[in-house]
């Protein structure tokens, strides 16, 4: 068994939340640059220029990319040959606490649905845990904004609605969201499982590399078709119209009940802030 010190987990989380809130991933920056050359209208181009200029100012001027520095989502994978003393969830939350306080990040978490009292340190993180083979701990860490999350949804389709039903649902959702979730978007879709599994699949999908595609032929085609059809909606950067409504579509799937076709759509804004760390 490999012994891990939870202090190292705290340190990794702290460094990760600070890094992602100040630095946009270069693969994402390249996609936005490409999108800008694809736009014909001045207004749409101008918004994409703002986004590109913004990430330069954030990086060089030491100001977070976005004022919504998000809720921290952690996809935690714990190897079955790892041992540690203490509470790993508390170690992660301590990393969030230190990162958000020392990194000048906004504290956006409130304790209760109705009293709306702020927790003052952006905890708790939302943590999904998996036990894996091996002696490593892996964490995918995101700072997920509220505006795009508010436009996300889970729908229980019926099996015979099939691929066309899924497409229509996704297109309607993105169209109706308009500029609110800060397009151009990364659209994470979870199909299958049940209510909560589909939502988790959709969340995992937005963590995928921008240039990867599904290894299932049908799903891969659906990713490509939806990418083209979403961009044909013309919602455009920040909803003002244009050719760029999404930068990527990622679909994850899972087996499901014979009676069900759950579909979750998790919308990610253009400021897609996430990273992966390993211990």
């Amino acid at each position: 068994m490999r012994q891990i010190n939870l202090v190292d987990i705290t340190k990794l989380v702290k460094e990760a939340v600070i890094k992602i809130n100040y630095n946009l991933d270069q693969s994402l920056v390249s996609l936005i640059q490409k999108a800008k050359t694809n736009e014909t209208r001045d207004l749409s181009k101008s918004i994409l220029s703002d986004i590109l200029e913004n990430q330069e100012i954030a990086k060089e001027g030491n100001i977070p990319l976005c004022q919504d520095t998000g809720v921290v989502v952690v996809l935690l994978e714990v190897g079955n040959n790892v041992t540690y003393e203490g509470d790993i969830y508390e170690a992660i939350n301590e990393g969030v606490r230190q990162g958000y306080l020392e990194g000048y990040l906004r504290k956006s978490m409130v304790t209760h649905p109705f009293n709306r009292v702020n927790t003052l340190d952006n905890t708790p993180a939302i943590i999904h845990t998996k036990i894996i083979q091996g002696d490593k701990i892996k964490m995918k860490i995101a700072a997920k904004g509220g505006g795009s999350e508010n436009m996300s949804k889970v729908t229980m389709l019926t099996p015979t609605e099939g691929i066309e039903g899924v497409k229509q649902l996704v297109l309607d959702t993105i169209f109706n969201a308009g500029g609110k979730p800060c397009p151009p978007l990364i659209v994470g879709i979870g199909i299958g499982g049940n209510l909560e599994k589909s939502a988790q699949l959709a969340k995992e999908a937005i963590f995928r590399d921008l240039d990867d595609c599904s290894d299932d032929k049908t799903i891969k085609k659906l990713e490509e078709d939806l990418y083209n059809e979403i961009n044909a909606l013309g919602v455009g950067p920040m909803g003002v119209g244009g050719n760029t409504t999404c930068l990527a579509v990622k679909i994850n799937y899972y087996p499901m009940h014979i009676a069900s076709l759950p579909v979750a759509i998790n919308i990610q804004c253009h400021s897609a802030r996430h990273t992966e760390v390993e211990l």
């Binding site: 703002d50 986004i51 200029e53 100012i57 954030a58 001027g61 990319l65 906004r106 904004g145």
Partner: peptide, 26 residues
Amino acid sequence: TTGGAGALMSSKIKKSTLVMYEDLGA
């Protein structure tokens, strides 16, 4: 304004002063 351009907008703001409701934080 351009959503998500928090750093860019910040560069156009020269001064900020609290006016009301300090308890609301951000």
